[in-house]
């Protein structure tokens, strides 16, 4: 048998460095760690709340530390980036066909932004934000 197919091995740790497209993708994947940590923090808060005012105060104090504030700012920026990049691809994932034509992607993305603003406002209202 003269066949001898050659398999080009790729490095499982550095493969994404070769192409800009892959690097950006991995950057996006890695930044979701921040979102994950933020979620754990929120859950910690809920747990603290269930344990009584003392425990909750400890949680609130921890939130005030400069390190946590810095972390929250970074996460906020990353969250914005993820939201915008997700909204920009929603027309692919959730196309809307009316009659024969598909709704232009811009409208579907805009719908998501509007929903985002509305939901944010509702949460802000429920949290008492509009009462000064």
């Amino acid at each position: 048998m003269s066949r001898k197919p050659y398999v080009r091995e790729i490095s499982h740790t550095t493969w994404y460095l070769a192409r800009r497209r892959d690097l950006l993708h991995m950057a996006q994947e890695v930044t979701s760690l921040f979102i994950g940590i933020y979620t754990i923090m929120l859950l910690w808060g809920v747990k603290a709340l269930s344990e009584g005012p003392g425990a909750y105060q400890v949680f609130l104090d921890a939130l005030g530390s400069p390190l946590v504030i810095a972390f929250n700012w970074i996460t906020f920026v990353i969250m914005l980036y993820h939201s915008i990049s997700w909204f920009s691809v929603t027309p692919k994932a959730m196309p809307v066909q009316i009659g024969e034509e598909f709704l232009p992607g811009g409208i579907i993305a805009a719908g998501h932004y509007i929903a985002w603003v509305v939901v944010s406002a509702v949460i802000y209202y429920l949290a008492g934000g509009f009462n000064g």
Partner: peptide, 26 residues
């Protein structure tokens, strides 16, 4: 699929496979 979207970037016939896969996930 991790929705890297590379498939759609390179598709010479603009089939957009990434969109198909995301629609199936949903």
């Amino acid at each position: 699929c991790s929705f890297a979207g590379a498939c759609s970037d390179v598709c010479p016939k603009h089939v957009d496979p990434a969109s198909a896969v995301q629609q199936m996930k949903i």
